[in-house]
């Protein structure tokens, strides 16, 4: 299951990262080196083993449905790279969801 150059591009796209054309080969090499180590997992029989997502077998705690928050917009937007009229700004999005 070695990672090829086109896989690097696809992964980078999903992760919203850019990889320079000339670096792709090197990145693929390092990722493959890591995946080789991870591959050792395949040698172990795990049929019937329940996947473990959390260290402790606990259940979700619930919060009361009461408003606890107040408007802090100005304070929060002080650290925003681009905000105007209370809105965060990004380059124009063409397609709409």
């Amino acid at each position: 299951m070695a990672i090829e150059k086109k896989d690097v591009t696809a992964i980078a796209r999903l992760a919203a990262l850019s990889v320079e054309e000339e670096e792709i080969g090197q990145v693929a090499g390092k990722l493959n080196h890591i995946l080789d180590v991870l591959q050792t997992m395949q040698s172990v029989e795990t049929d019937g083993v329940e996947p473990m997502s959390h260290p402790l077998d606990q259940v979700q705690r619930l919060r009361e449905d009461t408003v606890t928050e107040t408007n802090q917009r100005d304070r929060y937007q002080r650290i925003a790279p681009a905000a105007e009229k209370g809105l965060y700004l990004v380059p124009q999005v063409i397609e709409q969801v």
């Binding site: 105007e84 009229k85 809105l87 965060y88 700004l89 990004v90 380059p91 124009q92 999005v93 969801v97």
Partner: peptide, 13 residues
């Protein structure tokens, strides 16, 4: 996303 508030920019609420 608010598309018509700023020219060339999209506002996010």
């Amino acid at each position: 996303s608010i598309h018509d508030a700023f020219p060339g920019m999209t506002g996010v609420d």
